[in-house]
């Protein structure tokens, strides 16, 4: 499904702020893989996701999605294949537009935008049905401005928008980090549900080790721009936070110095 071949990225090359964010990352995801990505601050997790999404262009290497070379495809063209949820709940939706307008925008991801009406009657009913399972009562607020919703509601809506067109790959970039624990749990549950029901392939960046272990069928850990651990299948199911920390120390030769990850274990 996704093939990342020797991807390198350096920010601000040749300056005092030079930062080698990715140092030759290789990763292959199979159809239906749900991989969680963990690592300390600056490990390159978000950069890796942004490379796949096309926010940054690669210095070297290749990215293939379902056999299609997307390495040099612009962000909006790649969007055809991708569903994305961001860390910032404000980022995934258009605040000044209605709930149904946002959904209609997402429903046309990957299509040419024509001079046809933006929302059809039939779609409106479909949106209502799609919103019901979120359990947030949004199905009765189709013409509410998204800016009036809470962070959790917006993130749930973004998730629905990202998943509704069945993307080849769903990218979740710490999408629960800005939410309170209860809302975060709800959104995570929804993510699981969407991925399972849609049989989606997904990558989820998280700071929370427990979440990284509890979700998905595969876990990768990044450190200083490289993948240092790749655990899957039965081995992942049995994994504990302690083992993960130990594995990290062994693989990187350093302590896992990240307050957020440690606090949230």
């Amino acid at each position: 499904m996704l093939e990342i071949k020797n991807i390198c990225k350096t920010f601000h090359p040749g300056t005092i702020n030079e930062k080698k964010a990715l140092k030759g990352v290789n990763l292959t995801l199979e159809d239906g893989d749900f991989v969680t990505v963990i690592g300390g601050n600056g490990a390159g997790k978000s950069t890796l996701l942004n490379m796949v999404a096309g926010v940054h262009t690669a210095d070297a290497g290749q990215i293939l999605l379902d056999g299609i070379d997307v390495t040099h495809l612009s962000e909006h063209k790649r969007a055809k294949y991708l569903g994305r949820v961001f860390q910032d709940p404000m980022m995934g939706t258009a605040a000044d537009m209605w709930i149904e307008e946002n959904l209609a925008l997402a429903a046309r991801r990957g299509q040419r935008r024509t001079l046809r009406w933006a929302i059809t009657k039939k779609e409106r009913e479909e949106f209502r049905e799609m919103l019901k399972p979120l359990g947030l009562g949004l199905e009765n607020r189709l013409s509410t401005k998204v800016g009036l919703l809470s962070g959790g509601q917006r993130q749930a809506l973004t998730l629905l928008m990202a998943a509704m067109k069945k993307p080849k790959l769903l990218l979740l970039d710490e999408h629960t980090a800005a939410l309170d624990p209860k809302t975060a749990a709800t959104v995570l549950e929804l993510s699981d549900k969407f991925i399972e029901e849609g049989k989606l392939t997904a990558m989820m960046v998280t700071h929370n080790m427990k979440d990284a272990i509890a979700h998905g069928n595969r876990l990768i850990m990044m450190h200083e721009g490289q993948i240092i651990l790749d655990i899957r299948g039965e081995e992942k199911k049995k994994l504990t936070v302690e083992e993960l920390l130990e594995a990290f120390t062994k693989a990187s030769g350093a302590e896992f110095a990240n307050d957020r990850a440690l606090l949230s274990k």
Binding site: E75, A79, F86, A95, A118
Partner: peptide, 18 residues
């Protein structure tokens, strides 16, 4: 609509293929 989304939130617009 895609024009409105562009003015409102560019990151979101691009993520939705605009």
């Amino acid at each position: 609509h895609s024009l409105r989304a562009t003015g409102c939130n560019q990151a979101m617009a691009r993520a939705n293929g605009i």
